[in-house]
Design a protein around this nucleic acid. Structure first.
Lengths: 122, 122
DNA sequence: TGTAGTGTTATAGTTAACTATAACAGCTAG
DNA sequence: CTAGCTGTTATAGTTAACTATAACACTACA
């Protein structure tokens, strides 16, 4: 595992997004523990405080709960909360800028499909 | 004019993106001068050095040329350079993450169209 | 010539993000 | 109780981004 980081956003926000993706993808289910602060820090060769900061964001968003001595756990209802919140956030704050960009660059649906994450038929 | 800034990226990069958008949109054509460092700084209530930094990025990318005492001017071929470079950059570095996100959130083409920048038929 | 507009550099200070290192606090399995 | 895993806090230092203020260098134009 080496998943690199983008310099377009602070690491702690990228870590947060990664957990959120895992929840939405069902990799992490409600009640599951997050990978421990120290483990993640070691895995990505990052400072434990940076990981902690990303996890505390998730706590602030009511998505996970922290139990001292035990770990951080995904709250009940976290996925639903996300499907509401993140959808709105994406549609209102990110997508308008992105779609404007796509038009500007004259990108076609075909090109976009080919460049999408998982190419359906290789 | 008050166009606000996003906290997801440094201001100087957002300013750079704004100029690039203007070039792609044809608002700024080759040979045209960019709005002056001081003007932009005043307009967005931002430090002149921040604006300068964004402009110097554009110089590094061979998109504009600086003539001391005169201003900064858009290079010949800038638009073509962009249509090549930015397309690749977008398709390779941004779009995969974005399309994964769209799938994850279960967003439909219909919702995306409605939320796009310019709503075609209101 | 001088003035007003350009880009550019210098100095210096604040804040946020990240880092290293270490210790503290709580839980559980042996 | 101890060892080993959790989260958490403390201290302190580096770097990038941004800010304020000022001066310098160059060009066009009246």
């Amino acid at each position: 595992m080496s998943l690199e980081f983008n310099d377009s956003q602070p690491i702690y926000r990228q870590l947060r997004d990664r957990v959120i993706a895992m929840i939405l993808d069902g990799v992490l289910k409600e009640g599951d523990p997050l990978p421990s602060v120290r483990n993640v820090a070691a895995e990505f060769r990052v400072n434990p405080l940076t990981v902690l900061k990303s996890y505390q964001q998730l706590v602030d968003e009511k998505l996970v709960e922290s139990r001292r001595g035990l770990g951080m756990f995904i709250n009940a209802g976290a996925r639903d909360l996300l499907l509401q919140g993140e959808r709105q956030k994406f549609l209102q704050e990110e997508w308008p800028r992105i779609s404007a960009n796509i038009q500007r660059l004259g990108l076609t649906p075909d090109e976009l499909l080919k460049a999408a994450k998982g190419v359906k038929k290789p």
